[in-house]
Design a protein around this nucleic acid. Structure first.
Length: 349
DNA sequence: AACCCGTGGGA
DNA sequence: TTCCCAAGGGT
């Protein structure tokens, strides 16, 4: 393997030629022209990109930045509005923490994001990865950015064959040996681009990799199998019932879910808990109709089979739980709830 | 430390 | 169809 500085420089040269266009990215040419990244935009993009693909984030990022151009705008937004705009992107704790963080930065830090690793990590929703990414990209600090891409690239480059997550510290140490003092933000994005486009999880394109001659995993012929992972646990199947009711004036009966737990803070259809058996808990006594078919949806750690029941309610209906939304936008619902809506809309139109 | 937390695209 | 897994963080 060549000198670390030489390798970093080689990757930066590759990045200068191949950097992908993203709405939040200040490219090498822009940077050279003295255009500095906006820490608010960097933070917004990095939070959205947590465990989420570039393709999925693109439109959400553009919309959020148009609606709330500064951290003060976001801090002053209504919770329900922000949660509705986040609907569909998943991991909804990110949206709750996004608002918390914006309010701290706007009201306690005079709108200025901290420019150090520790200062950033102290904020809600900013962990080791995001803090390093913001420090490097927005503040030109030489911090080591470690995400799934970096772990994969390092496992292959250094042929670290111990399984994840146990090997994470070794992968981080390996990454740190390559982090350059110059252009740390471009370098961080370059390694992630490399992982996303060349050093991919399956069938990596080693022939066109700028680090192909340095890669110990490739030399041994095991690169495609790295990083190794511990066996995953099987996902159980849970069952539930969604109660979708519409009042005669057209308002839908929905509930705002509690802040903690699954789909926390999001709108949803009332119903009992999801478990081995569906809990039968209608929000109001009514002539509920069992819809044929069901909604199937897979979450991070279980499969869900959701039955849907519908009813039309009188104008004076007083449900035990939930509230009526006169103009419900399906796009404000998390995906599983939108699927249930799609199943019911034909019968309650 | 181990578990919880979404979604969609690709193979 | 099923499985994998993606620019992780909180508890």
């Amino acid at each position: 393997m060549r000198d670390a500085g030489v390798m970093a420089g080689e990757l930066l040269d590759w990045y200068d030629r191949h950097a992908r266009d993203m709405p939040w990215r200040v490219g090498p040419a822009d940077r050279a022209a003295g255009i500095a990244p906006d820490p608010y935009a960097v933070w917004m993009s990095e939070v959205m990109l947590q465990q989420t693909t570039v393709a999925a984030v693109r439109d959400y990022f553009t919309r959020f930045m148009a609606l709330w151009p500064t951290v003060h705008d976001l801090a002053n937004a209504e919770d329900a509005r922000v949660m509705g705009e986040w609907a569909g992107l998943g991991y909804y704790a990110r949206a709750r923490n996004l608002l918390k963080c914006a309010r701290v930065v706007s009201r306690e830090l005079d709108g200025a994001f901290p420019d150090t690793l520790d200062g950033l990590k102290a904020l809600p929703g900013i962990g080791p990865y995001t803090a390093a990414a913001i420090a490097a990209i927005a503040f030109d600090r030489s911090e080591t950015v470690v995400d799934g891409n970096v772990e994969r690239v390092m496992a292959r480059l250094f042929c670290i064959e111990d399984p994840m997550p146990g090997s994470k510290p070794a992968l981080r140490d390996a990454a740190a040996t390559l982090t350059p003092k110059a252009r740390p933000g471009d370098y961080a994005q370059a390694v992630m681009d490399l992982g996303a486009t060349i050093c991919t999880p399956k069938s990596p394109a080693c022939g066109i990799c700028p680090w192909r001659d340095d890669c110990a995993g490739r030399a041994k012929g095991v690169q495609a199998a790295l990083p190794a992972r511990e066996a995953k646990k099987p996902k159980p199947i849970r069952h539930g019932i969604a109660y979708i009711a519409r009042r005669t004036d057209g308002a839908w009966l929905v509930e705002t879910r509690p802040d903690k737990g699954l789909l926390g803070g999001m709108l949803g259809w009332p119903g009992g808990d999801w478990g081995d058996e569906a809990e039968d808990l209608p929000p109001i006594a009514a002539d509920w109709a069992d819809l044929p078919g069901d909604v199937r949806h897979t979450f991070t750690h279980f499969h869900l089979i959701l039955r849907v029941r519908t009813a039309t309610l009188p104008q004076d209906a007083a449900p035990e739980r939930g509230h009526f939304e006169p103009r419900l936008a399906p796009s404000d619902l998390p995906t599983v709830m939108r699927k249930a809506f799609d199943l019911a809309r034909g019968t309650l139109s």
